[in-house]
Amino acid sequence: MPLFMDFHKLDSDAITEEDMYKAHLRDIAIQNKHGLVYKKYYLNLNHKTAFCLMEGPNKKACIESHKEAHGVGACNIIEVSPEHEFIPYMGKGDQNEKDLALTLSGEVDSGFRTILLVDFLALTKPSDNITTEIRDTIEQKKGNLVKIPNKKVMASFINASDAVKCSMEIALYFEALGGNVPFSIALATGQPVDEHSTDLFEETKKKVRVMSRLGFELGICMDSNTELSAIKTNDSSQLDTAGITTIDHATYAEMQKLDAVLMKNLNDSSFNADALSKQLGLSKTQAYRKISALFGIPPKRLLSELRLLDAAKALTISGKTVSEVAYDSGFNSPTYFTRVFRNRFDILPSKMNKSGFGQ
């Protein structure tokens, strides 16, 4: 049968584990009537959230069962793939005699996870060797690898501090390569299902993708949820986060808006720093100040960097000529593109195109 996961927002601060178990028993009492099998439930009393995992014939049966058992449905229910979503993101875990989800270490599983996304550009080394090293580090730091349809590497961590330590070790590995492998590492922590999601960890995955796309100037960046979770689960005196940029909620909202504008216009050669400022609803001075404060470079330089990265990736995965890639990436002159590409990466784009690096 299909696998479903729901989300409940607990309204009362007085709810206990015993209260949740009694609610779970009400679900079990009528599960056969609706053709369901309630597997286990995840509980986070601090965030007042609960997530139930169940097998059933369809989403409608899950909704009707909850209404009958509790008089009201779940805040949201989504279908999840056991092999491609649930196990990679949530892990196998365990449960106690009351079906409360437990981590492999025996602690109550809150359902929250820290998602790590690593993106890099292999200029002079085969990317497969780098990917293998990253994957090995993730597994050593208790992360679960998640398959995604591109050259990036994604993983899920139960413990945010493990994810932070893993990101720092991966960054050190990149630095040991001599600085010729541009990279971005993004970390975000969130819940598996929220009120509007249709996909497991939908909002958290969106967040790491935005931070990753814009994060090559930052190296490692994490959201404030990850920082707080890491501090709670680790002795803060032993968790060195130097070199990691923390993105608070307000800053992420600005990054999200910036990312949307850039994704729409980056490949348009007429789109410049002035147009970027206008579409962000900022004056030139405001855009310069905000972008420089976050990324350490002005808007014009950020545009150039992102276009060069976009072009470099295209050269490693497409069969297009250097001129085609230059125009596709927002450069209106292949000659100018070749010059700035060589100045930035110390390699001719034609050499990179023929090398097969990144394949």
Rank of each mutant, 00 (worst) to 15 (best):
P2R: 03
P2C: 10
M5R: 01
F7G: 00
E17G: 07
E18W: 05
H24N: 08
A29C: 04
A29N: 11
I30N: 09
L43Q: 07
N44S: 14
E55L: 05
A69F: 09
H70I: 00
V72S: 10
E85I: 02
E85N: 05
G91E: 02
D94E: 02
K98N: 09
L100R: 12
A101E: 07
T103L: 06
F112E: 05
R113Y: 06
T114P: 03
I115S: 00
I138Q: 05
I138V: 12
V146C: 11
I148V: 15
A155E: 08
I158N: 13
A163I: 14
F174V: 07
G179F: 02
I185A: 03
I185V: 02
P192W: 09
K205T: 15
K207P: 00
K207E: 14
S212H: 09
E217P: 05
G219Y: 07
D223E: 12
D235G: 01
I244L: 02
I247H: 11
Y252G: 12
K257Q: 14
V261A: 07
M263T: 10
S270F: 14
S277Q: 02
Q279D: 14
S292M: 14
G296K: 15
K313E: 13
A314I: 07
A314Q: 15
T321Y: 10
V322H: 13
V322P: 15
Y327D: 10
S333G: 02
R342T: 03
L348Q: 12
